[in-house]
Design a protein around this nucleic acid. Structure first.
Lengths: 341, 341
DNA sequence: TTGTAAGCGTTATCAT
DNA sequence: ATGATAACGCTTACAA
């Protein structure tokens, strides 16, 4: 960008003082004669004047920028989350600085630093699970942090917005059990993640409620990145007693799991019933259409932005808020009775 | 965020002047005794000091923020583009302000305003095609704009990074023709978009090269948003002489098209051969696996960031740059000879 | 109603 | 090697 006109240029051209220009810039900050206002506005127009955000932010904290720290935006779940967060934020006149961690705590801490330096008014994040000290420092600094999707148990002070992971997984496994499956596998996120742990817990609850054996061999924690999901499938299939049903509770690994299943020639649902945590339009286009657990991404986004911003408004509620929205189990055709081959 | 320590607090606590602190903050900006540097660093550490970006930006223009203006991040293509842009930017130490337009020019112009106010060092955008005056003004201001994916023909001064849309569509249609299809349909983006127009042009080239009739009824321009793709399918299928092959060149409408096809009970590729412009992992998981046109998103992102930033560095090459990267036609199983039903 | 001037937190220029 | 101090562009008491 070239040398842009400043508020002084406008003032001079309009034959008024900078204070007056500032007042027409910020209506309500002081009186301005209608005639003057008109003239000033005209000048701004012809000069192509745009107030410089950096200068404004320098005075008061910038209640105008939100940091969105996601693992990765290639993952459609996070992408849609980002989309909604951005829209919610824009609706409130605030902008979003998008950062990604690739699930790498080193990168996460770097991103957090720049977020701090920018004095963002709030941070919405899917934490890697590490960098405990930094998160702590952040909340000590009075930063308005909201964890979305996942959380960090040892940081109970932070606001959290997510689905009820335990219940969602419980419902999925329960549906499978209700169809008569006795050997139900689950591929979830890493044990270090709350989503991974909670979904496994829900799975176990359903197993217990249905009076089924808890075979730990059927429970697989797969990393979010890489081919972990596919490997878990292979391991599961080569078991002496392989599962007849599978819950894929690791959204980031759904396609790798399905690919491996396809390569292995496993037919769904005849040989294996499947439920996935994933709500892409593609799930419905599969053969057969997949039974899924759908997360209400719009709600996750809305609440996250709300929290991140309400806290910023000084409404330090004191108590940390945890919002759990309901996920929806959508039955399609990838679940059948076992042995229906 | 609470009241944070400033450079003055650090200076005071370390028993030096702010100038010294600034020098340790910006190595190379001046000499600092090793001992002093150590002391200052310690103080910064214990005080938890972070230099405020807004203040820095106030001095010199912020070569530290990039605006990324996309139509919508729910679209996996744009999502992956965003992901790569963010990574490329971070690798260069610069941050990304993510904005979306929902293909709405009103929103686009608002977003552009805030980008201007922030004096971002560059803007990477998928323009709606309107707001001509604003884009013009932007380049007059010396802003570093890069159009990615699409462009605006009447703005030849702007850098553009995209695949060769004409050639990509030509290759797709040519493949279909080579399989013996004589009635090949195409569903592309709106005629107002360069991608829409170029891909249709490529389609026509292939038709001509193959000596086939140009039936305009087989050419459908569908809006990026909404159910336009599905409607186009219905229209195509109800033709007296429906196509035996279809190129879906509107990435945003691929799933709606496939859904409509599925509902209509059209079997692929027996009744209809299909090629889609889309590179989601899901395309390979479909039955049958889809033949696709893959865009090298990483290259699009890398070049975009490079251009947006190199221009910013004052390297005003003068001439606008247009970079066309090659898309890849990946043959899978959704294309067969016609009438193989 | 309008103008003056003191910051906001950094960087950079000159002195010392 | 270090220290004052004047910007940077804007907001905001406080005067006029």
């Amino acid at each position: 960008m070239q040398k842009q006109p400043t508020i002084r240029d406008v003032a001079h051209a309009a034959g008024v003082s900078v204070a007056v220009v500032s007042r027409v810039l910020n209506p309500g900050s002081g009186p301005v004669a209608a005639a003057t206002r008109g003239r000033v506005n005209d000048v701004m127009q012809t000069l192509g004047y745009h107030p410089r955000t950096a200068a404004r932010e320098l005075k008061h904290g910038p209640a105008t920028t939100l940091g969105l720290l996601l693992a990765d935006v290639s993952n459609p779940f996070f992408a849609r989350l980002a989309d909604h967060v951005v829209q919610e934020a824009h609706a409130r006149g605030i902008q979003v600085l998008l950062m990604t961690t690739q699930e790498d705590d080193r990168l996460e801490s770097e991103r957090l630093s720049t977020l701090i330096e920018r004095r963002v008014s709030g941070i919405i994040a899917t934490p890697t699970g590490n960098n405990l000290e930094i998160w702590k420092k952040l909340q000590d600094m009075g930063a308005d942090v909201v964890f979305v999707d996942r959380s960090i148990p040892s940081l109970p002070e932070v606001d959290v917005v997510s689905i009820n992971n335990t219940e969602s997984a419980r419902a999925a496994t329960a549906l499978l059990a209700a169809h008569g499956h006795r050997r139900i596998g689950i591929i979830s996120g890493p044990a270090s993640s709350t989503t991974g742990r909670d979904r496994i817990a829900g799975h176990r609850q359903a197993l217990e409620a249905a009076g089924l054996d808890q075979d730990d061999l059927l429970i697989r924690s797969a990393a979010f990145r890489g081919a972990a999901g596919g490997d878990a499938v292979t391991a599961l299939l080569s078991l002496e007693h392989p599962p007849t049903a599978l819950v894929v509770a690791n959204t980031a690994q759904v396609t790798t799991v399905l690919r491996r299943l396809a390569h292995a020639g496993v037919s769904i649902p005849d040989e294996l019933s499947v439920i996935v945590f994933e709500d892409s339009p593609w799930t419905e286009l599969m053969t057969p259409p997949l039974t899924i657990v759908r997360q209400p991404i719009d709600l996750l986004a809305r609440h996250s932005v709300q929290l991140a911003l309400s806290n910023a408004s000084g409404q330090t509620s004191g108590k940390p808020t945890t919002i759990r929205v309901e996920a929806e189990l959508i039955e399609r055709s990838s679940v059948a009775r076992p042995g229906s081959k």
